[in-house]
Nucleic acid binder design. Structure first.
Lengths: 301, 301
DNA sequence: ATGAATTAATGCCCACAGAGCATAGCTAAA
DNA sequence: TTTAGCTATGCTCTGTGGGCATTAATTCAT
């Protein structure tokens, strides 16, 4: 079956006149004659009922002509959609992220991205830093956020955010902006720590803050969920150290004391991923990161 | 856009290996390489993400591949159905008929036809003999039944049924099989006649029965509907002359007395109508007509 | 009736699209 | 490093499909 034949057939079916149809098809009439003949031979039936002078569709030809229109349109639609996918306007994207990213730029990124590309179906998947590398390589996720930048040639990385850690404590705690000097003052305080395991970069970074002052924190509770940690702190069950981003939109009963140390959030994706949705996402991230406030706002109270 | 390219694309998408795909397509590998290249050029995008060693689908390519399957299937379906139409297994048929045909072979024909060709949508249209010729030529109906055979080169004709007229009268009428001799005895009886107009062949045939005995019947009522006529006769409002077929399945209060004169039912269709459904219908009619009882059964009582 | 005009089919020839072959160039595995 | 396996490219040539000229049939106008 050849395209050419079907296209010519439709034109003849429309004009019911070989000469005129041939003209529109930029063909000579004899060529068109033979095309129709060969199509009829291939289908094993006459599509036109014609004598030397007049041309009419047979019942089968009429049916074929009717059905062929939508069929051709489908192909047009199909290539159209394919082009949209190629431009990254359409498709799917799975984002792997640590829970903490939901408290920093990720919501803004998602907002911008879904505004720019409303037809991309975006799914979120909360994965810890150990899982993300595997998930990326196994195509489980397309992009991810990490607190450390893995060195793997198959993965590419870009720093999107550097922010200070903050000591989080209840507002009525004896430490406050005037009395607070350094983490050294918290040697005897109970802490609520992440439950990620010692090998995760984020945990290591966090613990390094304390060891710099010569002690390891006393862990009263462990949780991986920022919201949980904040709630526990608010109830006076311990202190916590979290990226300053968590301050946004949290209870007034909490106080965030900025620490000199910073943590970095990296964007990670498969090197040379051909999916245009991914590159579009990277661009949106870049934009959001550029606009992100570098200076942390003063506490409101 | 060319078929060849899409077919090759699908094979490569399936195998993800040019050499093997080329083999299955009965092509040399370089030809396939260039086909894919030309398809990509036409769509303005890469469909495969490939280096010298490995081939993978891009997002756009994956989409195209998925969508192309059903699309190809559609074409298969489409040609399949077209072939069925060509064979007359599928389609539409409009049958024009006089009301009287519904009392003779038409029901049997319809039954046989719809059993043999269940996917042909058959519609019935009750037309009188004057309208049928026009309806056929204007493609309003595809075949028809007529009591006379029109001589028109554009229409073809076949005799399907010859049957006697019968005098229809109430069972308690003074005429009965033993007393009945000929229509001459009915000179003074009121009759219920068709309302078709004098120019219609059937009317002329009918009236000729009476004029052969030297009188024109006294018309008390007129109706074109056999069922109506029979009911009027049953109620003693007059006698009627109808084709014997009407006897089938009518009330026991009626008596049918066979007359020596016959009426003929012809099948009519457009000469050289290319619609295979029509020729199939003609064949079914032929079959039914051949099996039709030539000898009229005796009256049951 | 007769010629002019229109139309589809056929014969013949030719150009070029597209296929094959040979090979280059690259990569992953052994 | 070698080797096997893969895609891309250069070159040549064949076969398909298109054009031109013509035929044959039909309609229409005079």
């Amino acid at each position: 079956m050849e395209f050419r034949l079907l296209r010519s057939f439709r034109q003849v079916a429309q004009d019911l006149n070989y000469s005129r149809a041939a003209e529109k098809l930029f063909l000579a009439q004899p060529a068109l004659s033979r095309q129709i003949q060969s199509l009829e031979a291939e289908l094993g039936m006459r599509l036109f009922d014609r004598d030397k002078r007049t041309v009419r569709l047979t019942a089968a030809g009429a049916y074929l002509n009717e059905q062929l229109g939508p069929w051709f349109d489908t192909l047009g639609h199909l290539t159209e959609q394919t082009k949209r996918i190629h431009q990254g306007d359409l498709g799917e994207l799975c984002i792997g992220h640590p829970g903490s990213a939901l408290y920093s730029i990720l919501p803004d990124v998602l907002a911008d991205f879904s505004r720019a590309y409303p037809d991309v179906i975006t799914s979120l998947r909360e994965v810890n830093e150990l899982e993300l590398r595997e998930a990326l390589l196994q195509q489980k996720v397309d992009v991810g956020f990490l607190r450390d930048a893995p060195i793997d040639p198959r993965l590419s990385t870009r720093l999107v955010l550097e922010e200070p850690f903050a000591l989080v404590l209840p507002r009525n705690h004896w430490l406050n902006p005037t009395t607070f000097d350094s983490l050294a003052q918290c040697r005897d305080e109970p802490f609520i720590l992440p439950a990620l395991g010692k090998s995760v970069t984020y945990t290591q970074q966090l613990l390094a803050l304390f060891t710099a002052h010569g002690y390891t924190p006393k862990a009263r509770y462990e949780s991986n969920y920022g919201a949980t940690i904040l709630r526990l702190v608010e109830k006076g069950l311990g202190l916590a150290v979290l990226p300053i981003s968590y301050q946004q939109g949290t209870s007034l009963n909490l106080r965030f004391l900025i620490l000199p140390d910073t943590t970095r959030l990296h964007l990670v994706w498969r090197t040379n991923d051909p999916n245009p949705v991914v590159t579009n996402f990277l661009n949106v991230c870049q934009g959001v990161a550029n606009d992100w406030p570098v200076t942390i706002p003063e506490l409101s109270a």
